[in-house]
Design a protein around this nucleic acid. Structure first.
Length: 564
RNA sequence: GUCCCAGUAGCUCAGUGGACAGAGCGGCUGCCUUCUAAGCAGCUGGCCGCGGGUUCGAAUCCUGCCUGGGACGCCA
């Protein structure tokens, strides 16, 4: 149990006692909030319960604080309980309990920070899902980093997490892509072919075409155009997906599943496809209607501004229709308890209709959460870099990672709340790459590691170290900071806000640097022997905290760092 | 026109209704014979966009306005 909860329980019990003692009269008890005060002088935790109770109890909040505080039973965690104006109750953690946590953290190892608020529930995080028509660019990179860190944290919080990439391999944009490759293929073979109007201009199209020529020669030229486009398209799509997979690799993102849009329309094991069944379900609920020759989903019934077409008058289904089938598949077919979609800002207008569709399918709409990852504006100094796939003028994930590095890249994207637009200055990111927070954190870990390495070299066995010797303020500060990781996991998992991770990492690093500066660990002085052993234990525990934090963020934890 | 996001230190951004508003970067001073100075210590720096409201208490909630960005297709 988190200390926070222990304290909340103690407060609740004290309030109950005060009530049965007849000194406090309240009809209803508000939820007990236990928070970390901004000012460390106020202790480790505080509750504002007396302030919230004052009106209902018709009493002075400070007096209430007094009455509750004196009824709080002592626990191993709590050292002191103090009422404070205007009506807080402040808690200080006991030093001996804190010291003991060093052992607890070491013993927990990789499971440190884990909890079970997810209770094994199946949750899918679907993210990136860029159309395989071109390389992944910077905006998508943000979503990739966000999704993977979120998935990591949800897993730590006890959810059964599936990371999924939705491959949009159908639709008209893919058609344009297929035709673009076909055109470049023919041009490369000396034919007179003209790029379609909505074609993709990027150089990578020509690259793919020449790769195909290299491996398969000109054999597609002999085929009928429609066949050639389809076949060469399939090859090109597979190449694009492989490319995207590599890009994801470069940024440290992996998926459990790559889900094909086309598969929604073909289902060999069943008389009907996901698409057919989803549509049937909507039809039976009277959520579909035909007019102007098209089939519409009646989303206005769910508060949307207008209805949306699912089948065009041409008979082709829309992207939205695929998406309905896809979500039907996620919930009804695969049985996910919860689905989190991470979409780019350009899809924000689709959230309402997607939730409406889910509801119309008979699924609790709250089980679907759509996170919008806002725009990333790229700059090089004062110059704004436009990002457009069509013109081929954009900065790719690959270019970004080559320039800034994976860890820095992840850190910068993670550090900003998903809902806010961010500016990414490439020049600045490169220039400051040796002076940025990423290295501050990793350097702390490297310092940590080098102490342990030295201890190993000298064959020091600190297993018997006595943690009760850890009384220096910087030692206790470090322990306190380590202990916030489990709370952080809960917070990130509940609010789906991974941007707290880097901020916590900074604070952990600061606590460690302070400790490093003021508490010599491996002492040359024989008299400090016992303290050395105790501190080595603390260092080992801190290493656990660093590794867990960096792992959640998907960043590497280097044992050595040196300036070149 | 409707909707979404944002406006906090010179810059980039944290801040889950609480007790004197924070970090990194930048700028200015100091500190390496001891586990890595990618570090530490100190200084510099803010009508939390503006006006109302709710509250014992507002950067945080509500509302109006201003500024910037984005979305509003039988595209995906």
């Amino acid at each position: 149990m988190l200390v926070r909860d222990t304290i909340a329980n103690a407060v609740a019990a004290a309030l109950e006692k005060a009530s049965s003692d007849g000194v406090i009269n309240v009809d209803s008890v508000p939820e007990i909030e236990v928070e970390r005060p901004n000012n460390a002088d106020h202790g480790d935790f505080a509750t504002n319960l007396p302030l919230r109770l004052a009106r209902a109890a018709r009493a002075n909040p400070l007096q209430l604080a007094q009455l509750i505080a004196e009824r709080i039973e002592s626990t191993p965690e709590i050292d002191s309980v103090a009422p404070a104006p205007p009506g807080f109750i402040n808690f200080k953690l006991s030093e001996s309990w804190l010291q003991q946590q060093v052992e607890t953290v070491r013993a927990a190892g990789d499971s440190f920070g884990a909890c079970d608020i997810g209770a094994g529930r199946k949750v899918m995080v679907e993210f990136v899902s860029v159309n395989p028509t071109g390389p992944v660019h910077v905006g998508h990179t943000r979503g990739a980093v966000l999704g993977s860190a979120l998935a990591n944290t949800l897993a730590a919080a006890g959810y059964d997490v599936t990371r999924e990439y939705y491959v949009n391999d159908g639709g008209s944009q893919m058609e344009a892509f297929y035709r673009s490759v076909w055109t470049r293929y023919r041009q490369a073979l000396g034919q007179d072919a003209e790029m379609p109007e909505n074609g993709y201009q990027g150089e990578y199209i020509a690259d793919i075409a020449s790769e195909i020529i290299e491996s398969e020669g000109n054999r597609y030229l002999d085929k009928a155009e429609a066949t050639a486009v389809r076949e060469i398209g399939d090859v090109a799509r597979d190449k694009m997906v492989a490319l995207i997979r590599n890009d994801m690799d470069a940024i440290g993102v992996s998926f459990d599943n790559w889900f094909s849009e086309r598969s929604l329309f073909q289902n060999p094991d069943s008389p009907s496809s996901d698409y057919d069944r989803a549509m049937a379900r909507l039809r039976s609920g009277s959520h579909l209607a035909e007019h102007s020759g098209a089939l519409w989903f009646l989303s206005t019934a769910f508060g949307d501004e207008r209805d949306n077409v699912v089948v065009r008058s041409s008979g082709e289904h829309t992207y939205f229709a695929s998406d309905i089938a896809y979500h039907f598949n996620k919930f009804a077919e695969r049985g996910f308890d919860r689905v989190i979609d991470i979409w780019g800002a350009d899809h924000q207008g689709h959230v309402i209709r997607m939730k409406a569709a889910v509801q119309a399918l008979g699924i609790e709409p709250d089980n679907l959460t759509v996170l919008i990852s806002q725009m990333v504006t790229l700059k090089r100094g004062d110059e704004t870099v436009r990002a457009s796939k069509r013109t081929g003028d954009f900065v790719t994930l690959r270019e970004l990672v080559d320039e800034v590095g994976m860890d820095a890249c992840r850190y910068f994207f993670l550090a900003r709340a998903a809902s806010t637009q961010m500016e990414f200055d490439l020049e600045l990111a490169t220039r400051e790459s040796s002076e940025n927070p990423v290295y501050y954190v990793q350097y702390a870990h490297a310092r940590n590691a080098s102490i342990l390495n030295l201890a190993a070299e000298r064959g020091i066995d600190y297993g018997a170290g006595d943690v009760s010797l850890l009384t220096h303020p910087n030692e206790l500060e470090l322990i306190r900071t380590m202990l916030r990781l489990p709370e952080l996991v809960v917070q990130v998992a509940e609010n789906l806000e991974p941007h707290h991770l880097p901020h916590y990492a900074m604070e952990l690093a600061t606590a460690f640097h302070h400790f490093y500066e003021n508490c010599r660990v491996i002492s040359a002085d024989q008299e400090d022997n016992e303290l050395t052993l105790a501190r080595l234990k603390l260092v080992a525990a801190a290493q656990v905290a660093f590794r867990r934090t960096l792992a959640l963020m998907g960043m590497s934890a280097p044992d050595r760092m040196e300036r070149s």
